[in-house]
Simulated scan of single mutants.
Amino acid sequence: MSNSSICIQEKDFDLSAEIAALRKNDPRVGAVVSFLGTVRDMNDGSQVKGMTLEHYPGMTEKALQEILDQAKARWGIYQTLVIHRVGPLLPEDQIVLVAVTSAHRGEAFAACEFIMDYLKTAAPFWKKEETPEGARWVDARVTDEVALSKWKEK
């Protein structure tokens, strides 16, 4: 049984099916924590009509695996899953799923938050938003960097 899965894909995913598959046949699991990120219709005061996510194949998966390995080294977690979509997306589309299983909720919550914080700042994804003012590349937010800093102190 693999204890981490990383999928970078253009197609959408079924949240319920992915969570069910993650915990299937593992009676040790007492907690499943997940984060689902979706495309918003507003960002930095501008309407977002859509976005395109790009990545560097091979490098992205390696960076994500390093993040998952760090989470496993810090907490007693079992399975991890990251699904990240690339390509063109519209408001309300699913972008990312991070899910973690463990015996207890505390470890699963902490690991899921850690993975998402690192994913937002350290994973090689590039996001371009389409707005009424034109296309613009989006950088990591200051709040994302602040969220990441709390893990570096521990």
Rank of each mutant, 00 (worst) to 15 (best):
D41R: 08
L119Q: 00
R74F: 09
V33W: 04
G106I: 02
P88E: 14
V138S: 00
Q65M: 08
A21M: 10
R141H: 10
K49W: 14
M42H: 15
V29T: 14
V146R: 10
G134W: 04
G45D: 06
I115T: 01
I8G: 07
L36S: 07
S5W: 13
A111Y: 03
I19M: 12
V96F: 07
K127S: 03
F35E: 07
V138I: 08
S2T: 13
D144N: 05
A31T: 05
A103C: 08
E133A: 15
Y118F: 13
I77W: 05
G30Q: 04
I95P: 00
S149L: 08
R105K: 10
Q9C: 11
T38L: 14
Q94D: 13
D69N: 13
P88W: 09
R23K: 14
D26Y: 05
T101Q: 00
L15Y: 10
N43W: 12
P27E: 11
I77V: 12
D144I: 01
L68F: 10
F125L: 07
M51F: 06
L15S: 03
E54W: 07
A31W: 02
A108Y: 00
A71M: 05
I6W: 02
P57A: 09
E130G: 02
Q70V: 09
A103D: 09
E54Y: 11
V32Y: 02
D26A: 10
A17F: 03
C7P: 02
M42F: 15
E92Q: 15
K154P: 03
A123W: 02
E66K: 15
D139P: 07
A122V: 05
A31S: 11
A135Y: 11
K24C: 14
S149E: 11
G58W: 12
A135S: 13
Q94G: 14
T60N: 08
P91A: 06
I83H: 07
I6F: 03
K128F: 08
Q94Y: 12
L36F: 05
P57D: 09
